[in-house]
Amino acid sequence: MARKPIQFRLNGKDEAVFVEEGQNLLDALRRQVGDTSPKYGCGQGTCGACTVLVDGEPRLSCLMLAESAEGASIETTAGLAGAELHPLQRAFLDGFAAQCGYCTSGMLMSAKALLDRNPSPTREQVVDAISGNICRCTGYEPIIDAILDAAARGAGRRSA
């Protein structure tokens, strides 16, 4: 199969990889780049575990063709923490918002997309923002609380 070179920014760094025709972005990130922070859940865009930010917008990387990421700026959970944890990560940790942890990566990215454009969301807006992310363990309540807690700590006002 023909392979195609693509270039994009990943968490602020330049990446150049060869991808196959029809390969999805999730697969390219995990296999070609080696960033395993986006998770493979359903592979059909219903669980949200693979959520990444593409030019600031939350996208299901399992449904996005890798070659359409050409020139884009992509953010994943692996790039969230700097010298310290991102306030969202800190709030998830403090609020026991993860159990098995498989949905956490996608939840964090959906939450970051929300707080980046709306630093002080209502509870309903948080629920709406994570409505495409399935969690099997927590019952969602600790996750919603953690996102609101991160907003209160100023997560959305942080410069990207």
């Binding site: 059909q44 399935i134 969690c135 019952g139 969602y140 919603i144």
Partner: peptide, 17 residues
């Protein structure tokens, strides 16, 4: 056969506990 046909309550369906 998949999440599209297997309903589960989402974050908007939870009640105070």
């Amino acid at each position: 056969v998949d999440y599209n046909g297997y309903p589960m309550p989402g974050p908007g369906d939870i009640a105070p506990h």
